[in-house]
């Protein structure tokens, strides 16, 4: 089996973009001989990633630095034993620390710990104005079953580029 790029998008993110990219991902996956459950896992994680990018992008617009030409991106690759999703967008430097802490905390939990965290948020968390319940990243970690990789590349005084890399095992 070779490495395959199933989706490689970089650009503007509107709500409609989510729909277009999801259709493309589903179409690409339909040609692969992979268990349906794994394909659904990939699509579900992709949904969370695309919605996250969209939320960050609208936040960017409100903070009026969206026109600085930093495009969001999302890549879906199939490797020998896994799918890899890479999702990237700009982030305010002030927001890096809390996000890092959140992901590190999630990475330190085992499956039961993640499940408990998920249940605590779904039962008690409030839906924010952006529509997020704060569940997305926990949901991604639970579904992927692997540790989340992340990277922050500084752009300037205010901004960095944030990348989240998620691995989904084929078996």
């Amino acid at each position: 089996m070779e490495k395959q790029i199933l989706l490689d998008y970089s650009g503007d993110f509107r709500f409609e973009t989510i729909e277009i990219l999801l259709q493309k991902v589903k179409e690409q996956l339909s040609h692969l001989e992979v268990k349906t459950g794994i394909k659904k896992k990939v699509v579900n994680i992709m949904v969370e990633c695309l919605e996250n990018i969209y939320k960050y992008t609208t936040l960017d617009k409100e903070n009026s630095y969206f026109n600085r030409n930093f495009k969001s991106k999302v890549i879906l690759k199939k490797e020998n034993k896994s799918f890899i999703i890479t999702a990237g967008n700009t982030i305010l430097n002030n927001n890096i620390e809390p996000l890092k802490e959140k992901i590190d905390h999630i990475n330190n939990l085992d499956k039961d710990g993640l499940q408990n965290l998920y249940e605590s948020i779904i039962n008690n968390g409030h839906i924010s104005d952006k529509g997020g319940a704060g569940l997305g990243i926990v949901d991604i970690a639970l579904r992927s079953g692997n540790k989340l990789n992340y990277d922050f590349s500084p752009i300037d005084h205010d901004l960095s580029f944030y990348e989240l890399k998620i691995k989904i095992n084929l078996l």
Partner: peptide, 12 residues
Amino acid sequence: EYFNSSSAKYIL
């Protein structure tokens, strides 16, 4: 068929 994490809260 598919739902996002914020829908999960409402479905619950």
